[in-house]
Design a protein around this nucleic acid. Structure first.
Length: 507
RNA sequence: GGCCCUGUCGUCUAGUUUGGUUAGGACGGCGCACUUUCAAUGCGCUAACAUAGGUUCAAAUCCUAUCAGGGCCGCCA
């Protein structure tokens, strides 16, 4: 018997991939690799009404960007293919039927309207959400309440029906969650969930159990919002006779909105100005694009590192981990139980850390597109030097353009007021004579430039602090950037002279 | 409303199993230093055991109750 760890991420391809989803993927990946196991991507596309064009490819792209590549997936295949539930449709009926035969499930013929009527009629202040359960099932139209002949008749007439689980009465269903410990449920309070829909597709409840069994999943991670339906799944594993093969469950804490409380949603990101999806998601119906972490200028390594620490830590205080380190150190019992509010400031801090620790030549291809997008003419080796000079003041990739543009193009907007605040004739004369002597500088290199600059300074009886800021503003356009003589060296003698002359004429 | 989950600085968290810490770290904020601007860096400050009762010489840690927040209650996942 093989004990190989097998986990799966099972998204429904209905839109952008949420932060929480990526974290679930990450924990799956880390757990699998830590234990030398396998990580499976399974697409749960059993709801035909929610089918969204391109959503599956988008998920695959996100996984690739994050570097969390599954061992088995729809595109890659594997020994348990197909990995798309819509392509496994034919498998589920048999199991649903088995459950009916064993008396653990039943046919229900109620129409949508009838269900709605039942809920409306039974709704009271003390019971705002009436369920289809052991209390109400006898009043509904199903193979438990109807005479056997009528059921046969309805089936023969091809009346649409669903198959529901028959929740037992007076039982306590328990299991041990890997991060929460013992959890108990009273079966009287759980409803008869639909297992097989009228269109022949399974619901999540049936599909997750059947596929986890068929795919030999050993550990199942999912969000905490699934906890209430756990007893259904537990019972299904038991009724199908697979109890000994049931995976160990771990219900992950939720990622909460930064302000107030509640689950973090795409809307919160729009409202507060930060991404929630991993990558840009363009809704094919509305054509609206929601910004992703990737396009916002995050490094995938930073994004993944940040997510790993949102609910987990290794107990040492270390915060920066490579993916390999995470694989090595991750353990499910150090996952926090409580939900974590997402902190965008901290997320940016991680990215800043990663930019500092990434070599300039690795940064080059990541930064380059942002310059191209702004149609700034670039030379690779020059850009790489610039990157080295400005990286410490860049938090997100687009910051490089903001911080480095003046290395490539003459600034259009000059912060004149900053110069004018302390401007006088003496300073003008200094700049003019320095300009005139520029050709006297032996090699156009920052130490030589600075030396020459200091010499002229002495002749004019000025202090360095008097003219350095004006010089900076003339070359850069504003009060920012690395050492001013290095900037002069980089942009060249002619451009330096040009910028100074230009600004001088405006003063 | 019912059920389930959770509760340590503003935020992420260490510490809870095996009671004894000035309750530690990080982000943020504030201040200082450095400085040629912006950053970066270094240093410092800020700030928490949800509440109430127990048990105990001693409780963040064990027990009880309360409170608060969250999740779920679809032929969605």
């Amino acid at each position: 018997m093989s004990n190989k760890v097998r986990v799966r991420f099972a998204p429904s391809p209905t839109g952008g991939l949420h932060l929480g989803g990526v974290r679930t993927i990450l924990y799956n990946y880390l757990f699998a690799h830590h234990h030398g196991g396998e990580f499976v991507l399974r697409i749960e596309d059993t709801d035909q009404n929610r089918y969204v064009e391109g959503a599956e490819q988008y998920i695959v792209d996100c996984l690739k960007w994050c570097g969390l590549i599954p061992d088995e997936s729809p595109e890659k295949g594997g020994p348990y293919a197909p990995y798309r539930q819509s392509e496994r449709k034919h498998l589920y009926y048999e199991y649903a039927q088995k459950l009916v035969d064993a008396g653990h499930a039943y046919y229900a013929f109620d129409t949508t309207n009838e269900l709605e009527n039942m809920r409306n009629q039974l709704r009271t202040d003390t019971n705002p959400n009436p369920q289809y359960d052991s209390n109400t099932r006898q009043q509904m139209r199903n193979s438990l309440s109807l005479p056997a002949e009528e059921v046969v008749d309805l089936l023969e007439k091809k009346t649409p029906y669903v198959i529901r689980i028959k929740m037992p009465q007076n039982q306590t269903v328990s299991f041990t969650d890997m991060i929460r410990g013992e959890i108990h449920f009273d079966t009287n309070l759980v409803d008869d969930k639909v297992l097989l829909k009228a269109d022949g597709m399974p619901t999540y409840h049936l599909a997750v159990v059947v596929d986890d069994y068929l795919m030999k999943i050993t550990h199942a991670f999912r969000g905490e919002e699934w906890l209430p339906s756990a007893p259904v799944h537990l019972l299904l594993w038991e009724y199908l006779g697979w109890k000994d093969n049931m995976p160990q469950w771990a219900h992950l804490p939720l990622i909460l909105k930064p302000d107030g409380n509640g689950k973090l949603s795409k809307r919160d990101g729009d409202r507060l100005g930060f991404p929630v999806f991993a990558m840009d998601w363009k809704d094919p119906k509305t054509n609206d694009t929601t910004t992703g972490f990737k396009e916002r200028g995050f490094l995938p390594e930073a994004f993944v590192n940040m997510l790993a620490l949102l609910g987990w830590n290794d107990g040492t205080g270390q915060e920066i981990f490579s993916l390999d380190e995470l694989v090595q150190k991750f353990s499910i019992d150090r996952v926090h139980k409580g939900g974590a509010k997402f902190d965008y400031e901290k997320a940016k801090w991680f990215n800043h850390q990663y930019i500092q620790h990434t070599a300039d030549d690795k940064l080059l291809p990541l930064v380059k597109p942002y310059f191209e997008k702004e149609q700034i003419p670039i030379d690779d080796s020059y850009l790489q030097k610039v990157i080295g000079l400005i990286k410490e003041r860049c938090t997100l990739l687009p910051d490089f353009v903001q911080q480095g543009r003046f290395f490539f193009v003459t600034p259009q907007h000059i912060d004149l007021p900053s110069i004018q605040a302390k401007w006088d004739e003496k300073k003008r004369q200094f700049f003019e004579s320095w300009l005139a002597g520029l050709d006297g500088i032996g090699s156009w290199e920052h130490t030589a430039i600075e030396q020459h600059f200091n010499g002229v300074l002495d002749q004019h009886g000025l202090k360095k602090g008097d003219v350095l800021l004006p010089l900076r503003v003339m070359l850069v356009g504003g009060k920012f950037g690395p050492g001013v003589f290095i900037i002069a060296e980089m942009i060249g003698k002619a451009e330096t002279a040009l910028r100074i002359t230009n600004v001088l004429s405006q003063l």
